[in-house]
């Protein structure tokens, strides 16, 4: 039974890692690579990390750092210009590309600045507490609240505009 619990825990962490990586890197393949890489590193250090909670927090921090590194090297080679533009007209054009309402929300979220995007994902998707988020993103709780508030307001504004267009 103990093994089954362990496998289930690892599986859940893996899914979480994937969702965060996918949010930051957008591409499924890259998110997959990130997840695998981080899991291997976590596995190598698993003896030092006794508590499941600390394993999870460690894995989240690792995946965040991995993704930021990837994004940095991409930006250096001018590959991710598309995702570094954060103007509203971009959200509007995305509305026409979106297949349905939900994938449109996804596009808005993916167009958020990196920090806001990560914090929004951790809070509104993964349901993390502010303490957990603080540990992962290494920011003060007040700064986290500011970023989260901005992200939520930004999504609201974009969605209201689209609602006015009637999609």
């Amino acid at each position: 039974m103990k093994e089954a619990v362990y496998i289930e825990t690892v599986h859940q962490i893996e899914q979480k890692l994937y969702r965060i990586a996918k949010r930051l890197l957008i591409s499924h393949e890259e998110a997959q690579d990130a997840t695998q890489e981080v899991l291997v590193k976590v596995w190598q250090r698993s003896s030092e990390l006794s508590h499941v909670k600390s394993i999870e927090a460690y894995a989240m921090t690792m995946v965040k750092n991995y993704c930021y590194d990837r994004l940095k090297s991409k930006q250096a080679s001018n590959m991710s210009i598309e995702y570094s533009i954060h103007d509203k007209s971009h959200d509007q054009s995305a509305a026409f590309e979106a297949k349905d309402r939900l994938s449109f929300v996804e596009k808005i979220v993916n167009n958020l600045p990196e920090k806001q995007k990560l914090i929004w994902q951790l809070r509104d998707v993964e349901g993390a507490t502010f303490e957990e988020i603080a540990e992962i993103v290494q920011m003060e709780p007040t700064a986290i609240r500011v970023n989260l508030s901005r992200a939520r307001k930004r999504i609201k504004e974009s969605l209201e505009q689209i609602d006015a267009y009637g999609i």
Partner: peptide, 24 residues
């Protein structure tokens, strides 16, 4: 509050997103 309905609906589906088994 239409925007909020969309947003919460999305955040719940986003939580369901899974790394597919065939690839890993």
């Amino acid at each position: 509050l239409n925007w909020a309905k969309m947003l919460f609906a999305y955040s719940e589906t986003a939580r369901e997103e899974q790394l597919d088994s065939s690839s890993v």
